[in-house]
Nucleic acid binder design. Structure first.
Lengths: 389, 389
DNA sequence: GTTGAACCTTCAAGTGAGTTGAGTTAATCG
DNA sequence: CGATTAACTCAACTCACTTGAAGGTTCAAC
């Protein structure tokens, strides 16, 4: 479907774009790199890389970072991504609020905003976005530095822009969300689900830096799965991959949905059953320190369920690592990582691993919003032959 | 890892190669196509496509197929893949035998061979492959028409050629299998596992023709998963994706490995427990017609387990369809497809599907061997920017 | 039946990007 | 200090795609 609509044919111009992405991607991966080194890694001639670098320098995408001494021969001048070369906007649209974050090309957070909503219909949200843009500008984010925006919305979004699919936000299923957002923001927009953007956040500025193939379990309302393959988001055939919350796992002699066991809602329900009221993430954190029996039971049950999920993910996808991230306090994520049993029966159980099989995310609670921005940065600094759809 | 070793940089030569693949891929997908049509689909200029086609014609890769009348204007000359343009060899190395199949570029089977082995160490197998090549030639497959070979081996093969990993075939873990096979066969070799090649067989000449994103459940000794994403095999980070047999599924109040429920061995064991001896696939087929209680029980249990697998695959990967294939009689595959409950709680449960959610494969028992050859054809007729590793 | 619009295809000139090979500069090693 | 090694640059070259004009062929409208 997608391939017939795009124009994947290669010509000089697209080759150039692709090679630019290759150069930028290499520099980002390595932190800094010299021309000759990039040429060797990419298979391009040094001359070609040299030309590209001088363009990137002139356009302000990279800066001289230093010289590589210690070897024989003329010391290589190394280059690094210029953090201020551009900025990306991440927007998360929830039923009750719009969150926004601005980051620079190196993944540093420039600014954050939150505007409460009473309704989240398109006609309510779009004007709010304009206000957000203005606020960002007020906080010092140059509007012409913005190279794009990532938008997180709940519900199956689909890559096709087809309307008619059920969405949890009212009114959005009937319109072409991406086009409307692009018009309002005046920026190229990518729409993704929370788990996928969270994965990108971990890749660009969190625990999965430099990892090209991994899976990300995201604690939002339920439990989502973000898949990164070859350094890019993997969306499946229709862009709806990653609904891991729905899969059946064995529990207490029966079968339950994974997200009925391992999710913030599951925890909150467990605690409520025990008469413990938790409203905010802070409540969950405070209670974790005390660790009443209901909490301990949930940790037990959730980590057992996560163990099943890990076994499934590893055997199906063979990722380099699995990251636990999302709207749970870091202590709890770390606790879950520690408790989750790593199945012996797994292709991931090999001696020569570069990363632990399961790790805790590092971007914190705003993973989805930050990831929406990270998605844009990741795309800008990666080679791609076809335009994003 | 892989990306730093390959040379993904784009230049005129690689652009050409990529665009050739694009043209060939379009023609294969459509059956036949005209120059202008391909130009529109690929975003290339008609002139560029014209040049590529005339090269392909001169080299014998495509032939004139007809003219598209009925529209206004000069009728387009259409071209089709020339089946005899090349041939691919598929080899399956088992502990007790080597199977081989030759196919042409349109996926027609040219010839098949089977040579029994007493041992399957490299020094036993490699000479047998030379004999196979000779036999193929004797049966009319021109040796210089061969464009490559795909090889299926049991056990985690890994894409890296790293030795030291456990293999089910003795002696193969210690050597660089691909290099040894390339030396012996004198052909570019791709090594894959059975489930992935079976998926390719279904894509090139079976039930998944024209489908770019799907999953394939393969009944071999156990149960394997072949993943096709964007028209190519998806191997995961380390090339070992697809070990679905190991995942836990709920069954009879407990947890069991999927392949202890849904696999040929599971069926054979069930029947053996009931005093029914089954040695060959034919036995299984005969017995299916009679359908004794043990058989019915297994069908029940296996399809329930497959239902779980379907739910997991759909929610995790959102494929266009799932194909059931492998070394079970077609009747049984069809029966399993019919019995397997399709979970309502799935992102795949959408109204606008182009394909059924679960379908039976069509390449039959030799799926893995044929798929090894199909892998080569698929690669030759698809655009790719980086060389296969 | 004639005219014209629509469409495919080719020719020839032009452009952009990567490659090649020689030459320059600057560290390190002996 | 000179030889060696390595990064980098200059200029000429090549390759593949694009552009624009021209030539053909079919269908449809008048």
């Amino acid at each position: 479907m997608a391939s017939t609509l795009l124009t994947p044919g290669s010509n000089a111009e697209r080759s150039r774009l692709y090679n630019r992405g290759l150069v930028l991607g290499h520099i980002r991966r390595e932190g800094e790199a010299g021309r000759a080194e990039i040429a060797r890694a990419s298979g391009l001639s040094t001359q070609a890389v040299s030309n590209i670098i001088s363009d990137l320098l002139a356009e302000g995408w990279v800066v001289e970072a230093g010289r590589r001494l210690g070897q024989r021969g003329l010391p290589a001048v190394t280059y690094a991504i210029r953090a201020e070369a551009g900025a990306a906007l991440g927007v998360e649209i929830r039923p009750d609020a719009v969150l926004a974050a601005w980051i620079d090309m190196s993944g540093h957070v420039l600014h954050g905003e939150r505007i409460a909503l009473s309704r989240a219909r398109p006609e309510d949200v779009l004007p709010v976005l304009e206000r957000l843009l203005a606020r960002g500008q007020g906080a010092g984010v140059a509007i012409d530095a913005l190279i794009g925006a990532g938008v997180v919305m709940p519900g199956p979004v689909g890559r096709t822009g087809l309307s008619g699919l059920a969405t949890e936000l009212p009114g959005w299923a009937e319109i072409d969300a991406r086009a409307a957002l692009e018009r309002t923001l005046g920026l190229p927009v990518t729409v993704e689900n929370d788990a996928n953007t969270a994965a990108m956040a971990e890749r660009v500025m969190g625990a999965a830096q430099g990892i090209d193939d991994f899976a990300c379990l995201y604690f939002g309302a339920g439990l989502g799965l973000g898949l990164v393959a070859g350094g890019a988001v993997f969306g499946g055939a229709f862009g709806n991959a990653g609904e891991i919350g729905h899969i059946p796992v064995p529990a207490r002699g029966g079968v339950q949905r994974l997200e009925d066991l391992a999710s913030r809602m599951a925890l909150a329900r467990r605690l409520a059953d025990a008469g413990l009221r938790t409203e905010t993430v802070e409540d969950l954190e405070t209670l974790h320190a005390a660790c009443p029996p209901a909490y301990a039971d949930w940790l037990e049950e959730a980590s057992a369920a996560l163990g099943h999920a890990v076994q499934i993910l590893e055997n199906l996808l063979d990722p380099e690592t699995i990251v636990l991230t999302g709207a749970l306090p870091p202590v709890i994520l770390a606790d879950l990582v520690a408790r989750t049993p790593l199945p012996a029966l797994s292709v991931a159980n090999r001696p020569d691993r570069r990363h632990p099989r399961l790790i805790a995310g590092r971007v914190g609670r705003r993973a989805a919003t930050l990831g929406a921005a990270a998605l844009v940065v990741n795309t800008a600094l990666s080679p791609r032959l076809v335009a994003p759809s």
